[in-house]
């Protein structure tokens, strides 16, 4: 660890305290991604070309093409707000049918959109593999000398 505060090297005296505080955070295990490391957005940083990036992006979007139904837990510091939060959650559980119905439709739309992007990308890759096409008719350009 390197740590310089206002020009003074503080790695030796403040470093262990920072390290201990960080260890306490890790032990509490408070940060987790919704996805495995192989499916994290960070894998996009490993792409070497734009084409590779696009393939990975489409794969990741496919995994993320839905809105979670699970209700989040808002952070509350004091007991009164915690109680208010619990009341709100109780009311929400009685009223959420309409919301879930809408979100379900939205999720289907998002899935279809992700599918469309993936199919379009596959289509373009197939075109690139099999040679140029006529941009108007989408028909293959015949090789030179071929009879039409």
């Amino acid at each position: 660890m390197k740590l310089t505060i206002a020009g003074q090297d503080r790695a030796a005296d403040l470093g262990p305290e920072i390290h201990a505080a960080a260890n306490a955070l890790v032990t509490a295990g408070t940060v987790s991604s919704r996805y495995a490391p192989t499916d994290s957005a960070l894998v996009l940083g490993g792409a070497r070309t734009e084409a590779e990036y696009l393939r990975e992006l489409i794969r990741l979007v496919r995994l993320r093409s839905a809105i979670s139904f699970a209700a989040p837990t808002p952070p509350h510091r004091n007991p009164l707000r915690r109680l208010a939060g619990a009341l709100r959650a109780a009311v929400w559980n009685r009223l959420r049918y309409d919301h879930d119905h809408t979100v379900n439709q939205l999720n289907v739309q998002l899935k279809l959109l992700a599918d469309t992007i993936e199919f379009q990308q596959q289509h373009f890759e197939n075109i690139l593999k099999s040679g140029p096409t006529n941009p108007v008719t989408d028909a293959r350009t015949p090789p030179p000398g071929a009879s039409t």
Binding site: L3, L14, A21
Partner: peptide, 21 residues
């Protein structure tokens, strides 16, 4: 140049703890 806080070789939880400090 002698001001602010400079760090390196810190894991994310360590940087979080430094931010808190």
């Amino acid at each position: 140049s002698g001001a602010g806080v400079l760090f390196d070789e810190m894991a994310p939880p360590e940087l979080a703890a430094l931010m808190q400090r």
